[in-house]
């Protein structure tokens, strides 16, 4: 009986934590359909903020810029990260572990610090705030995600599929494309997705490195919030939350059913 009561209490607690996490998102979606400009009640349903978002705003342009920019950075990170992970493959497990911990440093070191130091370097070589600088800086901090998730795919020490292909007559290049790469694809893709999200999100780096006048979505929102909050931002937030949930589902599918995905 005591156990039952305890279990119920902890279940309630779990519910509270979920509410704490998801209430803000629910509120913002709810308010994005509220006619009142200041988010005040009484509630009156409207879709005009969505209309405004998609017709007259600068928000959509900023979102487009962020999307394209993140796509380019994530793609570059995917190539760089995959090659890096492959290079670490022949190392002994202990050395690979060392490299792995080392490459995860850019993930742990605050982006604030990294953005500052990247800006210093860019200023030093004369590029300063520029598209190329922002691109390099962002790519640098997201590449480790690809490396780490790709490395995770060749954990199995007893995996002899590559050796098997060789005994069947495949030359090393053929083995790479027929066996190694298909095995790594789920890791590479989930790494790239992760990198994309991180890049899309990285206000700090973009705020430091973006050329003057260029506004990615995080910078645009930041600017708008400082000058006064408008409900069309609720609409944008709702759209983004939906897109992110979709991406999260996709990530989940790749992470937990990689085998299925490979059989496509």
């Amino acid at each position: 009986m005591k156990d039952k009561a305890f279990n119920r209490a902890i279940l309630i607690w779990t519910g509270l934590v979920y509410a704490f996490l998801f209430l803000p998102i629910a509120v913002i979606v709810f308010m994005s359909f509220n006619a009142n400009k200041y988010g005040a009640l009484p509630y009156a349903f409207t879709t005009r903020w969505y209309v405004k978002l998609f017709t007259e705003d600068g928000l959509l342009a900023a979102a487009g810029l962020s999307f394209g920019f993140s796509l380019a950075a994530a793609f570059t990170a995917m190539i760089l990260g995959t090659v890096t992970a492959l290079g670490m493959r022949p190392l002994t497990p202990s050395w690979r572990g060392r490299y792995r911990r080392f490459i995860s440093l850019p993930v742990v070191i605050p982006w604030l610090v990294q953005a500052t130091s990247i800006l210093m370097i860019l200023n030093f070589i004369g590029w300063g705030r520029s598209y190329i600088g922002m691109f390099l800086g962002n790519t640098a901090v997201i590449t480790p995600y690809v490396v780490m998730l790709t490395l995770g795919r060749f954990s199995d020490a007893d995996d002899n599929t590559e050796n098997a292909a060789r005994t069947l007559g495949a030359r090393p290049v053929r083995v790479f494309f027929d066996v190694t790469l298909p095995k790594l694809v789920p890791g590479i893709l989930s790494g790239a997705l992760m990198a994309f999200i991180m890049c899309f999100n990285s206000f700090c780096i973009q705020y430091y490195l973006a050329p003057f006048g260029v506004r990615t979505l995080p910078i645009e929102i930041f600017t708008l919030v400082r000058s006064g909050y408008t409900p069309d931002m609720n609409a944008l937030a709702a759209v983004m939350a939906l897109a992110a949930a979709g991406v999260a589902l996709l990530l989940n599918k790749m992470g937990y059913s990689g085998k299925k995905l490979m059989n496509m």
Partner: peptide, 13 residues
Amino acid sequence: IGMMFQNYALFPN
């Protein structure tokens, strides 16, 4: 030379 491995080493894809 044909070879069989302990963990089968089949191509999963």
